[in-house]
Simulated assay, not measured.
Amino acid sequence: MPTVESKLTDITGELRGETDRAYRIYDGKTTEWVAKSLVERNEYDGTFTMPRWLAVEKGFV
């Protein structure tokens, strides 16, 4: 059975915008808004951890 960790993915990207509820992430080819409630941002290394389904839906993977 998959663990919760295996359902997460890290995206390396650039923060291109931000609101109270969302980040606008650019990964080198795709720019998309993602809900902050679904994403954890590491501002030191530029990674965004999110559910794999969201990364696929937004075109990051």
Rank of each mutant, 00 (worst) to 15 (best):
M1A: 09
M1W: 09
M1L: 09
M1F: 10
M1D: 11
P2L: 08
P2Q: 10
P2N: 11
T3P: 01
T3M: 08
V4W: 13
V4Y: 13
V4C: 09
E5Q: 15
E5M: 13
E5A: 14
S6Q: 14
K7P: 08
K7D: 12
K7Q: 15
L8Y: 13
L8H: 10
L8E: 14
T9A: 01
T9K: 03
D10P: 06
T12L: 09
T12A: 08
T12V: 12
G13R: 04
E14W: 02
E14F: 00
L15P: 06
L15M: 05
L15W: 03
L15G: 00
R16I: 05
R16E: 04
R16W: 04
G17C: 02
G17E: 07
E18L: 00
E18Y: 01
T19R: 01
T19F: 02
D20S: 12
D20V: 11
D20N: 14
D20A: 14
R21A: 12
R21F: 09
A22L: 07
A22S: 15
A22K: 13
A22M: 12
Y23Q: 07
I25E: 03
I25M: 05
I25R: 01
I25C: 01
Y26W: 10
Y26H: 11
Y26A: 01
Y26T: 03
Y26K: 04
D27I: 04
D27P: 02
D27T: 00
D27K: 02
D27G: 00
G28F: 01
G28H: 00
G28C: 01
K29D: 03
T30R: 05
T30Y: 00
T30K: 02
T30D: 00
T30N: 00
T31Q: 03
T31Y: 00
E32W: 08
W33F: 08
W33G: 02
V34P: 08
V34K: 03
V34G: 07
A35T: 04
A35R: 09
K36F: 04
K36R: 11
K36I: 06
K36D: 04
L38I: 15
L38S: 15
V39I: 13
V39T: 14
E40D: 13
E40K: 15
E40V: 15
E40A: 15
E40M: 12
R41W: 10
R41S: 11
N42G: 01
E43P: 10
Y44Q: 15
Y44I: 13
Y44G: 13
Y44A: 15
D45A: 00
D45S: 03
T47A: 00
T47L: 03
F48L: 06
F48A: 04
F48E: 03
F48P: 06
T49K: 12
M50R: 04
P51C: 08
P51T: 13
R52W: 12
R52F: 12
W53T: 13
L54D: 03
L54G: 07
L54P: 02
L54A: 08
A55G: 09
V56E: 15
V56H: 10
V56R: 11
E57S: 14
E57V: 11
E57T: 15
K58F: 07
K58Y: 06
K58P: 07
K58M: 12
G59C: 02
G59Q: 02
G59W: 01
G59L: 02
F60V: 05
F60I: 07
F60G: 02
F60A: 02
V61Q: 07
